[in-house]
Structures are given as C-alpha cells and as structure tokens.
Design a protein around this nucleic acid. Structure first.
Lengths: 219, 219, 219, 219
DNA sequence: CATGAATGAGAATTCATTCAT
DNA sequence: CATGAATGAATTCTCATTCAT
C-alpha cells in the first residue's frame, strides 16, 4: 500500500505553492486511504467515521468537508483506489511482434505481479462481495472498468494466437478467457479467506496456471 | 432451503408429544433459515435481530431463547446450514468400475448441480469473505469440513486416472485439483457479485470446464 | 439461615398427609427463602425472577402462583422473614427479680446473639436502605414491628433501673436507649459494607458496649 | 450540592477561552450531580442513563462523552462527590491549646454540622450498602479515605486526653472511638430510612451524644 | 477550513409477566 | 397445579451527522 500512497503524494508535492495548500490538496487522498484501511480491517458497516478520521490524522468533521457521507466515502474508495492492471494499447506497443504464447506468459506475469504487489483489487473485491448489493451501480461500473478489460485483453491475445494459427480456433470461444483466468481468482479468494491452504510457491503456481492455459489453447 | 426444513420436520413430526413441543423443535431451524436469508440480503452487521425475528415469525426475545447472541447466531448459520457436496465413500460405491474421465464428468455434474440447486455454499462463502476475520476458527473449520473434501475428491479421481494410465502423471500434482476446479469458483463469485456478465448457458459452461480439465490431464 | 429453613420445614413435616401436599405447603416458604438469598446477593432490581425460581427448584411460572409480582415478593420477603428479637413478656417472665444491670447484660447478649446467628435482620435493613423508598409503608411498618420493640425493651429496662434507684434518672430520657444501642447498629452496618475494618473480637466488643452503657446509666 | 458546583465554576470561569470550553469544563460536574440525585431517588440499578441526562440538561449520548459507562459513572459519583469532614492537620492548628474535652465537643459539632449541611456522605453510604458488593474496591477505598480518618481523628483526641490525664487510660482502647461515634451513624441510618422516628431536636441529640462520650472517657 | 461537543435515532440484549399446554 | 415458550417494553450503549466556535 505504501508505494501507492507515496505515488499519490508525489504527484502533488512538486509544484504545490505552500505546505498548507499541499496538505489540503492531499487530504482527500489521505482520507481515502485511511478509509480503505479501516474498511479492510473491519468491513464497511463496522467501520466508524471517527476511526477513519483518526487514521487520517484529522477529526470527524473534516471527513464531511470532502465526502457527503459514509456511503459516498465508501463508493469513492472503490472508485478512486481501483487501479487498472493493463493499459491495453501500451501492452501491444511494448510487446509488438512477440509470439502469442509469450504474450500469454507476459500477461499472466503482469496479472500475478499486480496481485502480489497490490492489495487494492483484492480488497475491493471483498468490499463488493460484502456490500455490493447496497451499491449495485458501483459493482457494475467497477466490473466494466476494471475486470472486463482484463478478460478482454486475454481474449485479444487468444484471438491473435488463433489468427496466427498457433492456437486452435476454439481458444477464442466466448467463455474461454473466463475459464482460463479462473485460477488467478481462486488465489485471490484464498487470500481473502486467509485460511491456511497449502498452496505451493507462487512461481510454481503461475507456471502451472500457464501450462494449463497452453494445454487448452495450443493446436 | 425447502428440503432442509422438510427434513427437520420429518425427524420430529411423527412422535412429537404436542404442538408446543413440535414448535419448539422447529424453531431453531426456522430462525437459522430466517437469519440466513437476512444475512444474504443485508450482510451480517447490517442485519437486525428484529428483522430475523420478523422473518421467522417470532419476536426478538425468542431469538435469544435459542441463540446466545448475534455472533452465535451467525456462526450457527454457517455451521448448521453448510452442506457437504460429496459423501466420498458413497460416490465410489455408486460409481465403481467407471472410467476416470467419466468420473470427472460425474464429479463436475455433481458440483454444478449442487451450486445450482442450493444457495448455501455460495452465500456462506460470502459470509466468510465479508466477516470471516471476526470468526477465524469458523473460517478454518468450514474450509476443512466443506471445501477441502471437494478438492480431495477430485485429487483422488485424478490419482486413479494416473494409476490406470489414462491420465498423465502430472495430473496428480499437488496444486492441480486446485487449478482445475477454479472455474467453478469463478462462477460462484460471479453470482455473488450479481453483475451482468455475459456468460453462456450453464450446460455449455460445464462442458467447457470439463474439456479444460481433460486437456490438462489426459495422456 | 439453614436453621430457619429447617425450622419451617419441621413445622409442617410431621402431620402432613402426603409428600405432594407437604411440598405444596412448603412452596411459599421455599420461594421466600430463595428470593431472600438472591436479593442479598444481587439486590432487588438486579435479581431475576428466574434466579429465584431456579434456587427454589421451581420454574418462573410457579412464582406467580404464590406471589402477585416481583414487588409483592420483595415485600413478603421483608414481612415474613423478619423475626422479632424479643418477646418482651416472655423476657420479663424468664428474668424476674434480676437486677437491672444484669438485665441490660442479658438484653445485650440476646441482641448480639441474634445478630450473629441470623442474617435476616441485617439484610432486611439493607433492603430497606436500598429500596425502601419504593415501599414506604413497608419501611414504616417494619420499623414499628421489629425495630421499635427493641428500643422499647431497653427503655423499659432502663426505667426499671431508675425506679430501683440503681440507674440515674436521666437514664430513661427519651433519646437515651437510641444512643445506647447505637454500637450494635454500627456493627451491623460494618458487616453490610463488608469492608475490612479492624474490629476486635465480638466478645470484647460486647463487653465494651456493655461498659459504655453502664457508665452512662449508673448512678 | 450548590457549593460544589460553584467551586468548580470558579476554578475555570476566569480564563476559559470560550463558551464551548466553559461548558465542557462544567459538564462532568453537572452530570455527576445529576447522577447523584437520581441514584439517591431511585437507586443505582433503577436509574436510567436517560434520567441522568435529562436532569443534567443534556442527552444520553453526552453522558458517554464523559463517562465510559454506567458503572464508571456510579464509581465517579462516589469518588468525586465524597468529601472529607476533617483536615486533621488544620484542625489541630486551629484548636491548639484547647482542653481535650472541648476538642471532643468541637469534633462532634463538626461531624453533625457536616451531616446536616451535606447529604453526600449519607447518600454515598446508602450507595455502598446497596450496591457496594458490585464494586468492592470502591467500598474499601472509600472507607480508607473518608471514614477511617474520622475515627482516627477521634482516636487522636482521646489519646491526647489520656496523655493529659483528664481521660482515663481505657479511653484510648482500640474499639473505643468506634463505639463512641456510633450514635452519629445511627442518626445517619435513620435519615436513610426516612421513617418517622420520634427523635428530639438535633441540638439535644448532640448534647446527649457528647455527654455519653464524656461519661465514658473522663477520669 | 477545521474542530469536536452534542445530538438522537437505532440496535443488541434483558427480563417481568402471561398463558396455552 | 406446574411448566416454560413467547412476548415486548425497557435499557444500555453506539455512531453518523450537525453546527457553533
């Protein structure tokens, strides 16, 4: 989490006119992160605004200067702290001319790297599973903006492989990317449950996942 | 839910001494189901005991005749409404002499049938993702009693296939069953999020899942 | 306390026609004693009817067969378990012709003996101090029936001593018995507070009390 | 009660920064007094936090800004509203060179004056008799801080009289002060019970008490 | 802008009392 | 008579939200 907070501070710090203004400009971010942490620890309903305020180093009233109410705060946490894994355009540019099986590997590495480094996606998934029914639009838009692109990206790689003839035609069937990505979700849920499942090393797991995909898509 | 209520009435109905006794015997089940429904709709923290009571057709006080407090009620919901998918022994007896690939198919059909017919496992997963950190033992024991057996069952089928030479030796590697079962979990989470993902028919999905497994385990 | 419970059982036991009837006849007494014990341990408000019932070996409903409600139960405990220390007439008959100073000693011994053997007076005093304002008539009538006679008895002894010329005339002044009996009340309060005051042996205390009286009343 | 409230305002009033701060500084005292009054009227258990709040002119929630819970409130009432009768050092300074019998009289006058003017000691005794068993440390520390010093003070006066030869040696025996002070406690209990005992004027009672003491301690 | 005292609508829990069996 | 399941009013305590300073 730290690296992200720092990233966001960095964005602001450089050109801000004074300490006061800098503080002020950061406030919403600081509050969002404090809220995120509290929501992770206690869940939405059990989190008290005052806890968020304390963690953010401000007082209750201040929260209400930046967020209408607790529900808005929650939704803003989900909306503003969600981070896309891929910029698809950039991915294609960076990896032009690579064979499709290598692209699958790069894709997978990126997905697991993101999951490893960054607790946001995982915990936001928890928020949506726990309290999403109270915020149906939020769930839908989060899915469209942050989940679907990941599936679409894989779909595009698979289609490329099919076009190139190294993947079998059925590899681009509609539900395929969905099924092929599943093991990553399984690992996520496992961490959310935090129960001692005896999983192997992450590296082995990624390899196994990669091989599973290949056996399904290769001609 | 229906089948459970009926089961419990059946146990008691015949020999119950009087109306009062019969009611008393059913109450805990009725309350558990009402609580389950409310927890599903609102989540643990946002559910009020009075809501549970109203849904169960009793008053607040009655809840406390049968459950110490809200936390115990929650834990009892998870413990008592969880249902094992397989009786492994019975599975083997019923399907003696079947070839391993057919067993995989039977296994998968059972898993998806269970998921379709019965909201308990799915919603209890939601409970544990949402509030499991407040009840760590609960999560652990639920995992051991209801989740691990499903993985173990698959593992045993895979091992049988390997022994018979129709599955490749790596099919019984430790993380394999974990990975191969993932698509079922994905579907579960999808339903928990209740967002309009454009999944195909369940039948097609199961077929795709089955084929994914076969491509990974066949020699 | 035991000896009193036994006393009351004994009264009934001998000639009762059957066990059932005997039980029934004892019920109110048993409930009163159970209630007394609970009130002593927890105080009036904090005592639950069910605790009383459990201690009496019956169920909640049964209490209401014998007592209108909790308030009545409390008042009956005070009224029916209060025990007079003296039967004044009997005292005079038994100790005819004794000199007055000896009567004072006999009187004092009786008072302290009663206090030692029997927790009722003390605890009923606690009840009245704690909750008497909710039952003003109760307090008044208890005072008249059980407290004033003790003071009057002493008053009469003092008057006798004055008549006989061995006590000075002022010994029979109106507030005198009140003041002279005070040390016994002090000891009672001390026990009610149950704080470790470093009082000497009871015997020494009674001697000191007796001497205090004598120094005040002797000519 | 008045004098205490005023005292606390005086401490703060002068330099307080604003109305809010001034209010905040007074609130705990105001609540303590309101709680005291309610506890006196209804007893600890029967007093509702809301009653205290209403009497203090605030709402329920406010009580909890200043006191953790009802038990703490009760204990703070006992601890913070208890007032020592004597500052022993000051007593000796003010009354240097007075004969011991005169000191006894001054002592007694102070005790009864305190009892007359100030309901705190009396009612706190009620609290401890009623509910002290739920707060054993409270009872013990109250005894040490507020009761024992009164007995010790008398003990010291008696010892001085013995040294000076005007009191007989036994006047300083350990239980003596305990016995000699008893009539004051009797009067206190009498007021707690609020039953119409036909006591004479307070002045006469104090005189009688004083004479009782003198007859016991004079050579 | 920021504060934090105050509010008051709830929510969990308890328990005297009733009444069908 | 006795039971004990059920009730529901009452009570403690919490916390999102407001607003005077």
């Amino acid at each position: 989490m730290a690296e992200i907070k720092e990233a966001s501070s960095a964005e602001v710090g450089a050109t801000a006119p004074g300490v006061r203004a800098r503080r002020k400009a950061q406030r919403p971010q600081e509050i969002l992160h404090a809220a995120f942490d509290e929501f992770v620890e206690r869940g939405y309903t059990a989190t008290r605004i005052e806890d968020v305020a304390n963690r953010a180093g401000v007082t209750k009233g201040t929260i209400y200067l930046y967020f209408q109410n607790k529900e808005e705060l929650f939704q803003d946490v989900v909306r503003k702290l969600s981070q896309p894994i891929f910029n698809e355009e950039q991915f294609w540019q960076e990896h032009q001319n690579r064979p499709s099986d290598e692209l699958v590997r790069l894709y997978l590495d990126t997905v697991y790297e993101h999951m490893t480094v960054n607790p946001y996606s995982r915990e936001i998934l928890r928020f949506l599973i726990s309290d999403g029914r109270s915020f149906p639009d939020l769930t839908a838009s989060h899915y469209e903006e942050f989940v679907r692109p990941i599936l679409t990206m894989l779909q595009h790689i698979l289609e490329k492989g099919v076009r190139e003839g190294i993947f079998r035609p059925e590899a681009a069937a509609s539900q395929m990317s969905y099924i092929l990505l599943s093991p990553a979700l399984t690992l996520t849920i496992d961490k959310l449950l935090d129960c001692q499942t005896d999983l192997p090393e992450l590296g082995d797991y990624v390899n196994a996942h990669y091989e599973m995909i290949m056996r399904n898509v290769r001609n």
